[in-house]
Nucleic acid binder design. Sequence first.
DNA 1: TTGACGCGCAACTCCATGGTTGCGTATTGT
DNA 2: ACAATACGCAACCATGGAGTTGCGCGTCAA
Lengths: 90, 90
Amino acid sequence: MDKDLVFKALADPTRRLMLDEFSECKEQTLYELTARLIMRHNVSISRQALAKHVDVLEKAGLISSEKRGKYRMLVFNNEPLRTVMDRWIK
Amino acid sequence: MDKDLVFKALADPTRRLMLDEFSECKEQTLYELTARLIMRHNVSISRQALAKHVDVLEKAGLISSEKRGKYRMLVFNNEPLRTVMDRWIK
DNA sequence: TTGACGCGCAACTCCATGGTTGCGTATTGT
DNA sequence: ACAATACGCAACCATGGAGTTGCGCGTCAA
């Protein structure tokens, strides 16, 4: 696990909103996630921009993705968040 | 406490090294901190660049500073780190 | 088969930010 | 008084990253 990638992923407010959605529903398609962000958080953003954020979160190990036919299923994993703060909080 | 500022502060690897030093020694002058980073972590960086990082950390509430004559004393505060991860780790 | 839809990819723009350089200020020791 | 030093400030440059646009591909229902 690359801690640098985790902190980079957390640096963006849109990605933190995405994590908020995932902490309520651990499995979502990219389509569902986009719809939720637009409707519940008034996020005005294109699908492609969201897809980029998904890539960043995936490289950080915070989500994993799986192709299911037409849809792309995203699964949340908060384990990196648990381990990344160890060095300062004792 | 502005969580956005905290995550921004954590996004940079140099600032995370600074926090590493602070978690070992909670009070340091800016001069001491600069010397430690250069010697113990082989960080090649100017004093001004460090001062900018200090400003970012201070705005995030992660350190507080106090002028003591010629020196600027910096004091670590990890409380924002404890509260900022709540929403995803339950 | 054909159209709609969810998605991937690449090029482009724009701006925040890390870093440097140069100069000025205040404090301290001799 | 004067030199050394720890620091603040402002301008500048270069890079990375967020966002958009346009196009094409694969899947599914009619």
